[in-house]
Amino acid sequence: MAQLTYREAVAEGIAQEMRRDNNVVFLGEDIAAAGGVFKATVGLFEEFGEKRVIDTPISENAILGAAMGAAMTGLKPIAEIMFSDFLAVCWDMVVNEIAKARYMTNGQVKVPLVIRTANGGGSRFGAQHSQSVENWAMAVPGIKVVAPSNPSDVKGLLAAAIRDPDPVLFFEHKSLYAMKGEVPNGEHVLELGKASVLRQGDDATIVALAAMVPRAVKAAEILATKGIEVTVVDVRSLVPLDTQTILAETVKTGRLFTVEENPRLCGWGSEISSIVTEECFYDLDAPVIRITTPHVPLPSSDNLEDATIPTVERIVETILKNMG
């Protein structure tokens, strides 16, 4: 095991796959010589050179278009969209082109690529650089959606995404980049579509994603001191979605709380709530409760942003209030 930060695990995951496969190429804005604006790709340019690690102009459509065309003709591109908010600039490429090409052409066109992007709030960047947009991606058939919560998952899931024959949108959480954690030495590859159960309790189940995972774990620790034992499930991948684990862990406790950064309407928690309600209603002791960001654009100031995104305290209070 090695101690790596979340951002170092990004570079490690990419490097592992670039060493293994010469057709893996990487492009994006400021990703090469500068090592990325979040310093998540430091060292790649030096190791793999300008032919494989390429700085692009500020042209998000051209970045994703080039990645798509290259994927269609034999390469395995990794494209970075610097902030996930900027996916709105090139959403046509994601939704109409990359996600649909295989289906529309009856399987003729293949698009094995990864779009990496920095997602989520907590950095005081304001409403256009802080959104959590994984729920947008989840609503589109044809693209896989992954969002790791710790350095080990970053490396293992990124490697899996690069090896996957389908397009994957890989949401890194910008407030987690400094997080340290144990990462296995040597080749590390996980499986997409497997949730991970981080903690088990008898009283309630929390399902969380990305930066909400460490907060859910912390909340569970506090609840344990109050005599409430909580299971914490890290979803890790919204598409494919590990409904088996989510349903099984919900049935065991009879209570489900989802914790997400998405704004209130149509966040991924609503889909999970809907699945659980349809498929294990009679195993529930209480309604499924969604803990979300309110339906507002994210404000910038410390105290405003902190009061907007779900906090450990809010998770604890919400669960206490609803345990009855």
């Binding site: 798509m68 269609m72 003709t73 046509d92 490429m93 082109e97």
Partner: peptide
């Protein structure tokens, strides 16, 4: 869209 995608096969 196709102008951007065409970059990819040229690349």
């Amino acid at each position: 869209a196709q102008l951007c995608i065409a970059l990819g096969s040229a690349w």
